[in-house]
Amino acid sequence: MIMQISRFYMLENVRNMGVFFGNIITPFIFVAFSFFINNALADNGDVATLIIKGQFIPLSILLLIFSFAFSSATIYLADLKADRTFYWIKRTGITYPKYYLGIALGVFSMMNIILFFVLLAYKTIVTMSFEDIFFIMIISNFVLIGLYPLSFILAGLLKNGKVANSMLVPLMLVLMFSVTMTNLFVSVSGKNPQDYYLYLIWNPMLYLNDIIQYQMGLTIGTWLPQYQYLILLSIFSVILLLIARRFFKINEG
C-alpha cells in the first residue's frame, strides 16, 4: 500500500514537467558550469577544482535537497489540502502516517536517484571516489530526514501550492546562503569558517556543507564529529515532526 502511494506520488511529480525540471535543472546547470570552468581553467586546475568542490558541488546538493524536501513536498501537500484530498483519503481506511510514509518514500527515492546522477556527473569532472559519493548520499538523506517534516509545517500554514511556492524562496535563501556566503566571505578574509559555525548551528544545511567540504578534501576535519551531525539531524526531525503534528491539521469531524 505504501509502495503504491509512493509510486503514484513519483508518477505525478515526474508528469508535472514544469515543477520536475524546475527541481532538477539547477544542479545540472552547476554541473555544466563545472565542466566549462574545468576546461577553461585547464592550466590552473587547482583553482577550478577548488571552485567546483568548494562551491558548485555543495550548492548543487543543497538546492536538490531543498527542492525535494521543501518545494515539491510542500507544494504537493498544500495542494492536497486545498483540493480536499484528505477528506477522500480519510474515508479509505488508510491511516495518515501510512499515507505520509508513502509520500516520504517517493520524495526520498526521487531525491536519491537524481542526487546519484548529479554526483556521477561531477565524478567525470573532478576526482571523487564512490566512497565519497556514498558518504555524501548518506548525509544528504539525513538532512532530508531532518528537514522533511518542515514541509508539513509549511503546508499546514500556507493556503495552497502557489502561496507555498512564493514563501519558499526567501526561506531557501536564508537556509542556503547563510551557510555558503559565510563560508565564502570568511575564507576570503583569511579566517577559518568553522570558527563561526556555532552561530549557524540552527541550520541543518550547515552540517551537509561541512561534511561535503571534508569528503571533498577541502578541510582536514568536520566541525563536529559526523555521528554528532547525524544525531542532531535526527533530533531536528523529531522536533519538527512534533511541531508538524500541531500545524498540519485536517478536520477529523
Binding site: Q4, R15, N16, D83, Y87, T92, I94
Partner: peptide, 29 residues
C-alpha cells in the same frame, strides 16, 4: 459515511484510471 463532493480536483497529474487504481489499493473493502 462516504460523500461525493461536487467535484474531484485531486491528483491532477494522474490519469483517471490511475486514481481509481490508487483508491482501490488503499481502500479497505
Amino acid at each position: 459515511v462516504s460523500i461525493q463532493y461536487q467535484y474531484f480536483e485531486s491528483y491532477k497529474y494522474l490519469k483517471i484510471r490511475e486514481i481509481i487504481a490508487l483508491f482501490q489499493k488503499i481502500t479497505q473493502q
